[in-house]
């Protein structure tokens, strides 16, 4: 990600037409699917900006209205859809939360994980009220991204993209094991697991300088997908992948779409430069809406081409 801009959009999340944008200047909320945005920390009456580096919404947002936001030193949570916030600190010295993932079965297990830039992964098993560092086997504590298995309740699988490659946990983030990437393909900036991961074992990794990597055996072996060079800031898979094998890859200056599980890619002109985050709230079908954040703090709504 670019470092010479002022208000990077780090992450975007949407549920039930309510969207959140985590930005260097704080967290922003939209209640109309991304058309208009408001500052979400108004209730905190902050005197200074509170850089927010990640955001995640509960899978049961319609009923629990729960949102988590990662900041330097802790995790903020809201139980009313972003109207009011509480903070839980992660301990000292403060760590910057770079990634948040939430269990698809959050309503039952209350599991939430926070990746940090300095101290590895923190895990909460009680809906974010308490956190503890779980870094057994995690030999690289600079977490760039986390990905959680859609079948987490059964397989407890997580992946962490780090400066030196990828680590995998198969016990809900309590311990991590190295995954062997081809030499020179690290750091890993983004990860995406197939919605049918339990069956097809497929995942994609976006690297800083070697494009997108694909594994179809749960990370044991990797092949390179033919993407242009450049840091892959975000990867999105179609919700019905692999039936519809669409993948969206966000590079700093390009938005790429593959319709064949990463075999070939086509650049989708956005007219935007310095893109840092992307969200496809309705999937990747032709004509579906896209929300794109930039390193200048802009959040723009577009639609995917119909062909």
């Amino acid at each position: 990600m670019s470092e010479n801009t002022q208000d990077i959009v780090y992450a975007l999340q949407c549920a039930q037409n309510v969207c959140f944008a985590a930005r260097a200047s704080g967290l922003y909320r939209s209640t109309d699917g991304g058309r208009s945005w408001e500052f979400a920390y108004t209730s905190l009456a902050l005197t200074d900006s509170l850089p927010t580096t990640s955001v995640v919404i509960s899978p049961d947002f319609a009923t629990d209205r729960t949102v988590f936001a990662g900041v330097s030193g802790g995790v903020l949570y809201s139980l009313d859809g972003g109207d009011s916030w509480q903070i839980v600190e992660l301990g000292t010295p403060p760590s910057t939360v770079s990634a948040l993932v939430i269990s698809p079965d959050f309503g039952r297990d209350g599991v939430l994980l926070a990746g940090t830039m300095e101290d590895g992964v923190f895990r909460s098993g009680n809906r974010g009220y308490n956190w503890a560092a779980w870094n057994f086997g995690l030999l690289d504590l600079s977490i760039f991204t986390l990905a959680i298995s859609p079948d987490f309740a059964a397989d407890e699988t997580l992946f962490a993209g780090v400066e030196s490659g990828i680590f995998r946990s198969t016990n809900g983030g309590r311990a991590w094991r190295e995954i062997m990437l081809p030499v020179g393909y690290e750091p890993v900036l983004s990860l995406a697991l197939s919605p049918a991961y339990a069956q097809d074992g497929t995942l994609f990794a976006g690297t800083e300088s070697q494009g997108v990597l694909r594994s179809t055996d749960r990370g044991a072996t990797w092949t390179q997908a033919a993407t242009p060079d450049g840091p892959v800031n975000s990867l999105l898979l179609a919700p019905d992948f692999p039936t519809r094998p669409y993948i969206l890859a966000l590079l700093e200056h390009a938005l790429l779409l593959s319709q064949d599980a990463g075999q070939t890619w086509r650049e989708y002109p956005t007219g935007l430069k310095d893109m840092s985050a992307v969200l496809a709230p309705a999937g990747l079908a032709p004509g579906a809406p896209l929300i794109i954040g930039t390193t200048r703090g802009d959040v723009v709504s577009l639609v995917l081409p119909t062909q």
Partner: peptide, 11 residues
């Protein structure tokens, strides 16, 4: 806790 050595070297 949290040694800041090169993670590649550690691995």
């Amino acid at each position: 806790v949290g040694g800041r050595g090169d993670p590649r070297a550690l691995r």
